[in-house]
């Protein structure tokens, strides 16, 4: 069967099988920023945006994603122009082993997009990360990074930056 997606803004059509999950489909095609961590939707390492909403790609069959828009961590920022959320994680020493980081960045992106501006509370930052297991950081610095990113994105200058990117 063929799975057609709008992947990071570009149309793709990939051969797949009914039992294949989206995580594996993406990884098979080199999108290795999406990680496999628990296979039950509880760790967040495999998070991607499906039609703009954060979902665990380990619980989405590739076939279920057919006809939808998928954004992965690879679609968020680049070496030349990292996304402000990625910058905030890097600057805030919120990246330790890094296995959870793409999922956390995706979660923050989804939440902040939906919220559409305005100040982010610490409680909200904790909630949006609650499905993202991290055994390294103790969440202190990721929470701070998300708050910092929200502030940066609320600043019209960096928001403009993002639009160009």
């Amino acid at each position: 069967m063929n799975v057609e997606l709008t992947l990071n803004g570009e149309a793709v059509s990939w051969e797949s099988e009914p039992h294949e999950f989206l995580t594996e489909l993406l990884r098979r095609h080199g999108l290795i920023g999406t990680k496999r961590g628990c296979e039950s939707g509880d760790c967040g390492a495999c998070a991607v945006l499906l039609d703009g909403e954060e979902v665990p790609s380990c619980l989405v069959l590739a076939a279920q994603a057919h006809g939808h828009e998928v954004t992965t961590i690879e679609g968020l920022g680049s070496w030349e122009r990292p996304h402000p959320i990625q910058e905030a994680f890097v600057d805030g020493t919120a990246v330790q082993c890094g296995y959870c980081t793409p999922g956390m960045v995706i979660a923050a992106k989804a939440y902040l997009d939906r919220k559409g501006g305005g100040p982010l509370s610490e409680r909200e930052a904790r909630e949006l990360l609650a499905g993202h297991v991290c055994r390294c950081t103790g969440y202190v610095k990721p929470i701070a990074a998300v708050l910092r990113a929200a502030e940066a994105l609320g600043d019209p200058r960096s928001a403009g930056e993002e639009e160009r990117a």
Partner: peptide
Amino acid sequence: YANLALQNR
């Protein structure tokens, strides 16, 4: 229920 990503699905 679980977490935000699962609540989305």
